[in-house]
Simulated assay, not measured.
Amino acid sequence: MGNFYFDEMVKSFSKLEQVDAILLAGSRAVQADDELSDYDVYIYTSNDIPVEVRKEITDQYCSYMEINNQYWETEDDGVLKDGTEIELIYRNIDWLDKELNRVVNVYQASTGYSTCFWYNLLNSKVLYERDGKAGILIDKYSVSYPGELKRNIISKNYPLLNSSMPAYRNQIKKALARNDIISVNHRIAEFIASYFDIVFAINEMPHPGEKKLINIALHNCNKLPELFEHNLTALLLQISSANAADNKQILSLIDEIVERLTQLLVQEGLAG
Rank of each mutant, 00 (worst) to 15 (best):
D97I: 02
Y61I: 07
D34I: 13
I172Y: 09
Y90Q: 03
S37N: 07
S144W: 10
I86M: 04
N220S: 10
A245I: 00
I202H: 03
N247A: 00
P159G: 09
E226W: 10
K156S: 11
I214G: 01
S27I: 15
V104E: 03
E87I: 01
L23Y: 14
T58A: 04
I216G: 04
W72D: 04
L161G: 13
G147L: 13
F13G: 05
C62K: 00
L253Q: 00
V51E: 00
F6V: 05
Y128N: 11
S163A: 13
L127V: 14
I49K: 06
R91S: 02
E229I: 09
N247L: 00
Y168W: 05
L16W: 03
A167P: 03
L161D: 15
K156I: 13
L23Q: 14
E87Q: 00
N123Q: 12
P206L: 10
N203C: 10
K55S: 03
E66M: 05
Y90E: 03
I250K: 07
S14W: 01
I257L: 15
V79K: 03
I257A: 05
L36K: 14
K15D: 03
Y113I: 12
Q171R: 15
N101P: 01
A29N: 09
V126W: 13
V51K: 08
E190K: 14
G132K: 04
G269E: 01
G272P: 08
D76Y: 10
E210L: 00
Y39V: 11
N92H: 06
Y90W: 03
L251F: 05
A175T: 03
K15W: 02
E75I: 09
Y42Q: 05
K150C: 12
I239Y: 10
I57F: 04
T111P: 11
F117C: 08
I136N: 05
P159A: 11
P208W: 07
K173L: 05
I216V: 13
Q108P: 08
A32W: 12
Y64E: 04
T58R: 04
A244I: 01
K211A: 01
I22F: 04
T262E: 02
Y141T: 00
E66N: 09
D7T: 15
G269M: 01
S164M: 13
L213M: 02
Y128A: 10
G26V: 11
M1P: 15
Y119R: 09
P166Q: 06
S163I: 15
T84Q: 01
Y39P: 05
Y128I: 09
N247C: 02
Y42I: 12
L122K: 10
D33T: 11
E73Q: 06
N220A: 08
K174I: 09
Y64Q: 07
V19I: 07
S63W: 01
H207L: 05
P225T: 11
A177P: 09
L235S: 06
Y113F: 15
L264H: 02
N247E: 00
N220Y: 00
D76E: 09
E52F: 06
E148D: 14
Y44A: 01
S63L: 02
A242I: 07
F4Q: 14
Q60F: 07
L149Y: 15
I257S: 06
L253W: 06
Y158T: 12
S241P: 06
L24N: 15
Y195L: 11
F117Y: 15
